[in-house]
Design a protein around this nucleic acid. Structure first.
Length: 201
DNA sequence: CGGATGATTCACT
DNA sequence: GTGAATCATCCGC
């Protein structure tokens, strides 16, 4: 059930970003288990991607997790308020990652409702990278965690979307990346209400 | 050591 | 649609 370490070694981050749609992201904090179906992702294409924190081989204390072997998390604070969760992929020193932008609440909905202070019927409970992370209880302490461990992991529940249900488009909020901002490296499930921003095909 | 800056969200107008 | 919130990180001096 749990995706094995080998899954994350895939060196094609665009494939992985698309393949992660329909997978189920779990967190366990104390006794609280929550999980959501991944319905929106973005690929960050290593050193050659101007939108990536690792662009040009930039290597700092913060970006260090990106350079690890695939299969760990990369969580960082954005705008001083939001924790954004990424799945690190590929091999060591090849800093590819997939940003999880939205999940559909599946397990532990009451816990997510409490964390977000809104009903899970509301789309915005886990729509957008900051909200999805908060619903799952992800914060800085989840940085650099092994994704095959027992604090945060991803399972395959056999959910498969048809090719025409998966939409590709430019990434959100990366205008600073100039021409790379136009690359169609955002993937989401068509018409899923938990997808942020435009979710139609 | 200080200034700038976000892979965003939410409350208002 | 607009603007505030809010701080770790990064980079230049």
């Amino acid at each position: 059930m749990k995706l094995p370490h080998s899954y994350y070694s895939n060196q094609d981050v665009l494939f992985l970003a698309q393949n992660l749609l329909g997978k189920v992201l779990f967190t366990e904090i104390g006794d609280a288990i929550t999980a959501g179906i991944i319905v929106e992702t973005e690929a960050y294409f290593g050193v050659q991607d101007k939108a990536s924190h690792a662009y040009g081989g930039r290597r700092t204390n913060r970006t260090e997790p990106l350079y690890s072997h695939g299969g760990i998390s990369y969580v960082y604070l954005c705008y001083g308020i939001h924790h954004l969760f990424n799945v690190v992929s590929s091999v060591e020193d090849d800093p590819h990652a997939v940003l999880i932008r939205a999940v559909e609440p599946l397990i532990g909905k009451e816990i997510m409702e409490h964390r977000r202070n809104m009903p899970s019927s509301k789309a915005t409970i886990s729509s957008g990278p900051g909200s999805a992370a908060k619903a799952l209880g992800i914060d800085q302490s989840f940085n650099k965690k092994d994704l095959t461990g027992d604090e945060i992991w991803i399972e395959d529940h056999g959910i498969l979307y048809k090719p025409d249900e998966i939409i590709t488009g430019p990434r959100i909020g990366v205008a600073y990346a100039q021409e790379d901002a136009l690359l169609p490296w955002r993937f989401f499930v068509k018409n899923n209400k938990y997808v942020s921003k435009p979710n139609k095909g």
